[in-house]
């Protein structure tokens, strides 16, 4: 396939948005208070919307007659290339906020850079994504500060979440051979180029939240090649089962 590299790159972005949006949507009806329920659904809707657009573009790029739903609902565990961070379970509100925050910081710098992609469609999606994530980051930053500097309990929960999720942060920056070619062509973002910015933003917020950055943590990797934690299989089983149970059906 001519555009296999781009197709594969789009799946990385689409899968991550879908899986993280899906995780957030699990909160709907169960958040700490009503306003936050609505806030989390807004973020989830932005992310699933972004996934939808990326899958459509991927389907078009592939040009094999598959649709966005085929890509979301008919691929298996090893074909999904979302980040390890995005698939981690919601846990308590601290886990959800740390997961979202770390991911928002990445997306914030990532979209900023992707805006100048030579691929017009990607660049347009980045402009939209950057506006959205700027707000998401403002929201998660507010919670990082409040939970980090709130009560003893909230502080320790947040620190614990940070310690547990830190091993998935290097995985955010992974890229494969196809991605590297796209970087050279000015289409994809070189994750290494935004790593310092990511570290700085994260450090600033951790300081305000009075959190200690985990050090010397062995990093889990592999999502770029479809190697996941066990959580993804269950998520996909739930998400895809209805669609797959009636293969001939329209919805």
């Amino acid at each position: 396939m001519k555009n296999e590299g781009l197709f594969n790159y789009l799946l990385r972005l689409a899968d991550t948005n879908l899986i993280l949006g899906h995780r957030l949507s699990e909160w709907c009806g169960h958040a700490p208070y009503l306003e936050e329920d609505i806030a989390m659904a807004n973020i989830a809707l932005d992310m699933i919307g972004q996934a939808n657009a990326l899958f459509q573009y991927a389907a078009k790029t592939e040009a094999k007659g598959r649709t966005e739903d085929d890509l979301a609902y008919m691929r298996n565990e090893r074909e999904f290339v979302n980040t390890l961070l995005s698939e981690q379970p919601n846990g308590d509100f601290a886990m959800t906020i740390v997961r979202q925050f770390l991911s928002d910081v990445f997306d914030f710098h990532f979209y900023e850079s992707l805006k100048s992609s030579k691929d017009e469609m990607l660049s347009a999606l980045a402009v939209k994504g950057h506006k959205e994530v700027t707000y998401h980051l403002r929201h998660t930053t507010a919670w990082m500060e409040r939970l980090g500097d709130g009560t003893e309990e909230s502080h320790s929960r947040l620190q614990k979440a940070l310690n547990e999720l830190w091993c998935y942060t290097d995985d955010l920056f992974e890229l494969n051979e196809g991605d590297k070619r796209l970087v050279k062509e000015g289409i994809a973002v070189d994750p290494a180029s935004i790593q310092n910015a990511w570290i700085k933003t994260v450090d600033d917020v951790l300081a305000k939240a009075k959190l200690v950055k985990p050090a010397g943590v062995w990093q889990q990797k592999g999502s770029r090649e479809g190697i996941h934690s066990e959580h993804l299989g269950f998520l996909l089983a739930e998400m895809q089962h209805l669609h797959r149970a009636y293969p001939q059906a329209q919805w």
């Binding site: 809707l45 939808n52 739903d69 669609h243």
Partner: peptide
């Protein structure tokens, strides 16, 4: 929401 059979339905139901 987590089982909606298409992306469109998923977004609509969540909203």
């Amino acid at each position: 929401i987590t089982r909606a059979p298409s992306l469109r339905r998923k977004m609509v139901l969540l909203a």
